[in-house]
Design a binder for these strands. Structure first.
Length: 140
DNA sequence: GCCAACGTTGGC
DNA sequence: GCCAACGTTGGC
């Protein structure tokens, strides 16, 4: 099983919105190849952190992949072909306390996280070691 | 296929 | 609100 990190601007679609929905959410709107390729690599059951960008700048909970990559219904075709894809995710569990970007930057073992190194990438891989450390920081 | 220009993201 | 970083687009 692999671990990931999903970024969302909370004023567009927040963790609370995902919880309130109580159903799978299509992770549409990603328009970057690196992020799309990460989604293509996902398998059902993979877990991901849910990160609030811009507002909060913190990891607030854990979600899970419930559908593998499929065409993004909000994207236009290019020359009749699908370019952008997305997975479906569902809320699993909130952090007892959010883990902020600032804390992550202060933590030596997390200095290599994509969140720090490639701040613009909206769907990122997370290593198992990073996953465990952040979960502990989040009170899980 | 390269690379300059442009647009967007996201932290500060 | 600014600006740096970086990914994409499009001309050549």
């Amino acid at each position: 099983m692999a671990y990931w990190l999903f970024k969302s601007e909370p004023d567009v679609f927040s963790w609370d919105d995902l919880v309130a929905k109580g159903a799978p959410e299509e992770w549409h709107g990603v328009r970057a190849f690196a992020a799309r390729n990460n989604m293509r690599a996902m398998k059902i059951g993979d877990l991901g952190f849910y990160y609030h960008s811009n507002i909060g700048k913190e990891i607030v909970g854990i979600c899970k992949v419930v559908a593998e990559a499929h065409p993004d219904s909000t994207a236009e075709l290019k020359n009749g072909k699908v370019v952008w894809e997305c997975v479906d995710v569902e809320a699993v569990e909130p952090f007892k306390r959010p883990v902020t970007l600032e804390e992550i930057k202060r933590t030596e073992e997390l200095a290599d996280m994509a969140l720090v190194k490639q701040s613009r990438l909206s769907v990122q891989p997370v290593t198992e070691a990073e996953w465990k450390i952040v979960c502990r920081m989040g009170g899980l």
